[in-house]
């Protein structure tokens, strides 16, 4: 008989209506400011800079500008630090990211050779100042390695292990270079 489909539908919605009162498991809504959704570890929002130890001197960034060049929407701006004679130092004086332009593509993270830029999980960055408030400068971007461990434990551990291995290799290389160093220096002196 026609019309019974409507009654079936009405029954279903009625079940939802009453069920939502006694069965909280039915609710799909999360009451946002009070409770927040659990992130996956790979969830990402905007980039940040990792430092070890000191928030300024401990930055891993060497201002090589690879990320600035690779960034598709061109939202990174880097000026390297200079010493008195105008020689560039391996340290950013200015490191700005315009998060109103950033599209969260993670390319900067993938191209960084020093594991110094990583993706954050902070998403509540709304501001009333739409010009200044959305440009994150160096001090706002700098976050500690502990924070990195906190938001992405697995990835941060892997990065730490890799960095440690790299450092060991460097030290071994340096140690190996130290013993034949005088000879090499001597040959170099002789050459010209």
């Amino acid at each position: 008989m026609p019309g019974f489909g409507i009654i079936k539908g009405l029954k279903e919605t009625a079940r939802n209506f009453f069920g939502s009162y006694h069965d909280p498991g039915r609710f799909v809504t999360i009451q946002y400011p009070e409770e927040k959704r659990e992130h996956h570890e790979n969830y990402r929002s905007f980039p940040f800079l990792v430092y070890d130890g000191d928030p300024v001197k401990g930055l891993r960034c060497v201002s090589c500008k690879i990320c600035e060049k690779e960034c598709p929407p061109q939202c990174i701006y880097i000026v390297p630090e200079q010493d008195g004679s105008g020689k560039l130092l391996k340290f950013p004086r200015i490191f700005d990211i315009d998060v109103s332009v950033c599209m969260g593509c993670q390319i900067c993270v993938e191209v960084c050779p020093f594991d110094s830029i990583k993706m954050d999980q902070e998403f509540e960055v709304s501001t009333a100042d739409r010009f200044g408030g959305l440009i994150l400068n160096r001090s706002k971007l700098a976050k500690s390695n502990e924070y990195y461990h906190q938001i992405r434990p697995a990835e941060a551990t892997a990065v730490d292990a890799q960095l440690a291995a790299e450092r060991e290799r460097q030290q071994a290389k340096a140690a190996a270079a130290k013993s034949p160093a005088p000879a090499a220096a001597a040959t170099r002196e002789k050459k010209p």
Binding site: T13, N16, F17, G19, S20, Y21, R26, F27, V28, T29
Partner: peptide, 10 residues
């Protein structure tokens, strides 16, 4: 409210 409850929302 009613529409919300029908769709399992508060």
């Amino acid at each position: 409210k009613g529409l919300g409850r029908i769709q399992n929302r508060p």
